[in-house]
């Protein structure tokens, strides 16, 4: 379980990097498309038929961020109950809270851009927490064997 916990935590950290990569890819594609004469407006944004291939990055960012990452964070929490890692549950809970906050900030970014700014910063918190959770799970928790516990 400890190994599963560790791998899962690192996968979530990697997911954060992927999220950034998806956005950078999509924005680069958008820039090129606009340079080539494309016009972005409300109807184009709301259309499910965005006319540059890199827009798949926006879609992947949304699906990954709103479904895959929270699912993994939830699984990590469940694993943490069994993994016997010192502070493992605490880190999994903190990570889940960061992820929840991150989703809300991502959606609130549609209302006020300042939330988008915070969304970018909180990404590092998600990354850092996930990485630390994985790193700390390297060693098994020092736990006295049952029966030898001091009374």
């Amino acid at each position: 379980m400890r190994v599963v916990y560790r791998i899962l935590a690192y996968v979530i950290a990697a997911e954060v990097a992927l999220q950034a990569a998806f956005m950078a890819y999509a924005i680069a594609g958008l820039y090129i498309w606009v340079q080539d004469g494309g016009v972005l407006d409300s109807a184009v944004m709301e259309s499910e038929d965005i006319p540059f291939d890199e827009s798949v990055g926006f879609m992947l960012h949304g699906i990954n961020g709103m479904m895959v990452v929270p699912f993994l964070a939830l699984v990590l929490l469940i694993i943490s109950f069994f993994a016997k890692i010192k502070g493992g549950i605490r880190f999994a809970v903190i990570l889940l809270l960061w992820v929840a906050l991150q989703i809300f900030l991502g959606l609130f970014g549609h209302e006020a851009a300042i939330f988008g700014l915070l969304h970018g910063l909180v990404a590092f918190a998600v990354y850092g927490t996930a990485f630390m959770a994985g790193f700390r799970a390297k060693k098994p928790a020092t736990e006295p064997a049952v029966g030898n516990a001091p009374q």
Binding site: L74, L77, I78, F81, F82, K84, V146
Partner: peptide, 24 residues
């Protein structure tokens, strides 16, 4: 007081159910 291994497993299962059950 320390919990036995079995009790710890039960607590872990209960915690997992507490997370999964409402979602399910």
């Amino acid at each position: 007081m320390r919990l036995s291994r079995r009790a710890k497993t039960l607590v872990a299962v209960a915690a997992a159910v507490a997370v999964i059950a409402p979602v399910a």
